[in-house]
Amino acid sequence: MDRTKRKDDAGPALLRLQPRKTNSHKGDYGRVLAVGGSPGMSGSITLTGVASLRCGAGLTTIAAPKSLQPLIAQFEASCMTIGLSEDRNGQLPMHARAEIAKAARISDVVAVGPGLGRSHGLDLLIKDLYCDLTTPMVVDADAINALGSRENPLAAPGGPRVLTPHPGEFRRLAHNRELPKGRWTDVAADMAKQNGVVLVLKGHRTTVTDGDHVYSNETGNPGMATAGAGDVLTGVIAALLGQGIPAFEAAQLGVYLHGLAGDLAAKAIGSDGLIASDLLDYLEAAFQQHRRRR
């Protein structure tokens, strides 16, 4: 796939998805490990896990505090679950690192952040996972906030990293940088280039950059401004990464398909009452429409 070096281009053309081979098995399509959840926020990581399956992951395991495991397991029988150590507040502690690292070793991609909550232990945990795991990783929500507590938030990634901040989270990541109005993309491109990561700036026109390329997405609608939509996006990108698609292309295609699913949902049921779980129902239709257009 050819890549130009202009920061104002649309990035490489959207990746073409190939039909599945007739003799394939679940191991051919990636193992996703989704890490997150805390009391009152079990739905976030569940949306991520189910979205990854809807986008073709061969196997998805949701790793969450052990008290939440029974609740999460009831949501979608197709997801495997792992109950992790938890602290007195029901959140993941620093010493859950070994359990997560063990699960990551048999996974093709890790998605971390949705519903985690905030604590000093979580800040340390996320820093270690970000810097030490070689497994490709999608970093979202409170995992981004945890990295924002570091002096250099994006430094020293242990492997391919895609971060998906909304505007408030991006401000935390860029705490040592000015954010001129209308030039956030330039700042994001510089940060991505310096640290070797991919940044997905979520918003009205979500932007994806790795520092060499900038892609501005044109799918999506106001109905997607709803809680949980970002958690679904995390699962979409994780599924594509787990299938061996490079980080920039996975993020680029992920935001396009996520927005297209939202457009299809809005057309069918309207945008005013759109909720995140509606997106799950239209992801497959988005994939099929993308294939037809190609």
Rank of each mutant, 00 (worst) to 15 (best):
L257H: 11
R88N: 10
Q252T: 05
P12G: 07
Y215G: 00
G121A: 05
N23P: 00
L241C: 01
K267H: 04
G220A: 02
L280I: 04
T61Y: 02
L264H: 01
M137I: 10
P153N: 06
R293H: 13
L53S: 14
V236K: 04
V32D: 10
T164I: 03
M41L: 15
L260Q: 12
V197Y: 09
I45F: 02
I126T: 08
L163I: 13
H25Y: 10
G244F: 03
L17H: 10
Y256F: 15
G117N: 04
N152M: 08
A111T: 07
G235W: 10
A239H: 01
G49C: 09
G58S: 04
L125R: 06
R3Y: 12
P70F: 01
K21I: 00
S67K: 12
F287S: 09
L53F: 11
M137Y: 10
L124K: 14
P167K: 07
L257K: 09
G242L: 07
L199M: 15
S271L: 03
V139P: 01
G223R: 13
L274P: 02
R20M: 08
E218G: 11
A238N: 04
R183I: 03
H95C: 02
P222T: 11
G242K: 08
R16S: 11
K26C: 02
K5T: 10
L92Q: 01
T60R: 08
N89Y: 08
C55H: 07
A155R: 10
L68E: 05
